[in-house]
Amino acid sequence: MSLDDTPTTDAESMTTTPTVTTTDDHSGTGETIIESRDIDVYYGDTQALDGISMEIPEQQVTALIGPSGCGKSTFLRSINRMNDLIDTARVEGEILLRGKNIYDDDVDPVALRRAVGMVFQEPNPFPKSIYDNVAYGLRVQGKDDNLDEKVEDALRRAAIWDEVGDQLDSSGLDLSGGQQQRLCIARAIAPDPEVILMDEPASALDPVATSQIEDLIEDLASEFTVVIVTHNMQQAARISDKTAVFLTGGELVEFGDTNRIFENPNSQRVEDYITGKFG
């Protein structure tokens, strides 16, 4: 694959998504899709991340947990170069996506974000119709053939079709918070990215909506690689295959299978954090 100035039609070839996958088992291929090598991020003179190296497996859910200010969201944003939008941010190190360093000079961040979609903390649908919200990514990426079909498909995969399928023309802002967030997930998955980054996608939602989002994330892992930031440890334990624990100072303290991290962490600091002794 190439991320360099990819014309919109080539972006199609990036997707490895199987067309029909119904299995809930998301053990995935387990192969590494994203490899971070010694990533440092600075905001002006302040260092936010210190030497992060980890390998994120394909078609699994990887959770990034840690206390506020530990840099987990910063790391997430460096995977699709959203940090580029912050004037003072500076990234050092490499992040390989299928072996290609996304910080190489020949990588266009816009093309990269077509392969690595994102869902944000606060639901942020556009003040447009439900249909246009989902269609937006398809349109800017030039994938607007069979638009109706793709919009419906994305809404189904985001488990919201049953609720909004008969009101596609009404505004995305008229939905409840949980529905808005699932609409945003539909918008992110509609163009079929390989990776979906989620920055605390359920933190602004009530428990029922949160549980719907969690179920949805587990389903999504059958098609996509999901990287999710959360400070809800139960949520990480419930839905993720791998967990990375960031602690204050912007360092990655421990990374491994979620079960092991929560049952038998190597680091005393991680154990203290998980058992609620601090953070």
């Binding site: 959203m82 093309a111 077509r114 994102m118 800017v140 918008r187 163009p191």
Partner: peptide, 18 residues
């Protein structure tokens, strides 16, 4: 215009002009 709206568009691969 909230920044979250701009981020939403960047997140699906829109250019600055878009």
């Amino acid at each position: 215009v909230p920044d979250s709206q701009r981020r939403a568009a960047y997140g699906v691969g829109a250019t600055k002009w878009e």
